[in-house]
Write a protein that binds this DNA or RNA. Structure first.
Lengths: 342, 342
DNA sequence: TCCTCTTGCTTAATCGTTAAACTAAAGATG
DNA sequence: CATCTTTAGTTTAACGATTAAGCAAGAGGA
């Protein structure tokens, strides 16, 4: 009852030749006319008739190449990661690679387990959207000479390939845009994290304020815990609005923060942008359909994903390829939520 | 430079025993195979020291079981599918299975290619969210005695395992809810499709109108092409609002239709629910954050995904398992967008 | 002393594919 | 005619793990 599949041997038997010959023919390696044309055609015909499907496992075992990429992300159900996954999938298929993904939930231990599973499955390389405190895993991969490319998040002190967004600049642009639009008390909500991309977003924000000679109140930069974002975002907004200098604009540094933040802003009955202007990182339908279209930082997902796959495949096929570190510019999509202050 | 990995042989060499013995010990079959306790412990120690990671490819080749599930979906970047994927991933991992997914873009040819790739990779079974006109692929899989479970979409005339939502009932409930709330001219926008889940949603809608003795104008049930949804949804809404009996409520039969529809409704400057009430299938942050929270049909993603994996794994482990066809009830989440008509 | 059991391990085959090395025969060359 | 080339294959081994079967040595019993 189990699916019995056609192997090279079956074809060889039917054609009255050795399995090796069939392999040569079917892999297009007629090895400089070492196989007679008629025989080759006969073999191909038989293979077609029997609906031969090569066993990828055997191929991989033999060749040491699985043509598989491991994709480690935080959570596939988050639209940012899902979009990345889609681009990675397409680009990988373009090179004949298959993707196995796994969600780490931003947890280093999960991420470690995941990497181990994927290693056992003999992926040829990894594309990793790192979780916090997961540097050890990268060293571990390096020890084993396993290829990987970091995507979206990277560690500046670790010398490796990566593709990411210029988060500092993106954040700076977001801040500058708000300044230009006449907002004077600009806040940011970020995750409490030592991840570089998050630090960069904060840095860009601060630099924007400094550059434009705006004050920066301590209360305006709020950091919340990832694990408790839902409630802490509310508190953060309360803090920003309290005191003598309530913010008139908020930059959300991730999609999730924005979603939770906007929900809370709705609950408070605040009007965007009249009561408070908004700019957010991330992108999703929400930003189009919110009562007032949200200005957002659009990362170049398409090229982020593509570049990561391109670099990884090159590295897999030639491990001596030079290290590539790519920073792509994000684009600020200006909408109603940050229109000029009246 | 290529990642050289530790194999059973390496351990055997170091321990001065045969590879077979190492295999017995590490697979926990030392007892049965009369391996001396001290030797077993020594071998385990060496394996740990060398950081031995079994080669899954070799295991699979030998055993004929890859412990891998192929997940065929339309598009991972669509939140519905991404959520399903997440649940499937978790549940599969729980059973020690890995998921390889691929996006078909609702296209039968893509879906066929995908299935072939996954077959070559020797997945043990499939979870398939079928594309239109992809019945042939299912017969193909059946011919090969390959296990699969249909998820979300199924073909009533094909006798196989499936897990889906009771779409007719869900749609009926959505319609009845609108009736109860006082709406009299209720329309639906669906995809022009012969997929059963879509037909069921239309059937439920019609039955709701009939049951409640409401008229059903031909213009009120609009079908649009998937490939051209963006523009056709607009036309559909125009049609529904034109004529002597414009609708006062719309049921969107998928998330995508709702997103495009709501964008168009915004462009028209219509107010939800005063000008037009809305109920939608699908679920996502959008529905919370739209200017007026959207009433939606919440499918039981968690149990849909879990049940599909449960059934598939059982089938893989015992192909004679009886066929299971599961229909889960959806839940209507009532919000502002369909509040009682004034 | 001979026979059987048990213990503790090894050998060899297998999964499907591929690459290198080998062979056998025909044809070309001097 | 002897030798080299080319053609068209075959054989073998290997990738790494598993497992049925085999074997040697010692224990125990009659």
């Amino acid at each position: 009852m189990s699916p019995k599949k056609v192997s090279l041997k079956d074809i060889a038997l039917k054609a009255g030749v050795s399995a090796a010959l069939v392999s040569y023919v079917l892999s297009g390696k007629g090895r400089q006319n070492r196989v007679k044309k008629e025989k080759a055609e006969e073999i191909q015909q038989i293979a077609k008739n029997l609906n031969y499907q090569p066993n990828h496992l055997a191929k991989s075992l033999r060749s040491g190449k699985s043509h598989t990429i491991g994709l480690v992300i935080a959570d596939i159900s988050n639209p940012f990661f899902a979009n990345i996954a889609r681009v990675v999938e397409n680009q990988a298929r373009h090179y004949g690679y298959t993707v196995i993904y796994g969600s780490s939930d931003e947890d280093a231990a999960n991420s470690k387990d995941l990497i181990d599973v994927l290693l056992n499955r003999r992926v040829d390389g990894f594309i990793i959207l790192s979780a916090e405190n997961s540097e050890q895993q990268l060293f571990y991969l390096m020890e084993q000479n396993m290829q990987f490319v970091l995507l979206d998040r990277y560690f500046p002190e670790i010398v490796t390939d990566y593709v990411s967004t210029n988060n500092c600049k993106a954040s700076f642009d977001a801040g500058s845009h708000l300044v230009k639009m006449g907002y004077k008390r600009i806040g940011m909500i970020a995750y409490k994290s030592n991840m570089f991309h998050m630090l960069e977003r904060m840095r860009g924000y601060k630099e924007a304020l400094e550059t434009h000679h705006l004050p920066c109140n301590e209360l305006w930069l709020q950091e919340v815990l990832f694990s408790n974002a839902k409630t802490e975002v509310g508190d953060a907004i309360d803090n920003m609005l309290s005191g003598s200098e309530p913010v008139d604009a908020i930059i959300f540094s991730t999609y999730n923060l924005a979603v939770n933040g906007l929900k809370y802003i709705n609950r408070l009955g605040l009007k965007v942008p009249d009561d408070i202007a908004i700019v957010s990182f991330g992108q999703a339908e929400v930003f189009d359909l919110y009562s007032c279209p949200i200005t957002y930082v659009m990362q170049d997902m398409e090229n982020l994903g593509k570049a990561a796959v391109d670099i990884l495949v090159k590295k897999i096929e030639n491990p001596k390829e030079a290290i590539q570190q790519v920073l792509l510019d994000a684009k600020l999509i200006e909408r109603e939520s940050s229109r000029a202050k009246v």
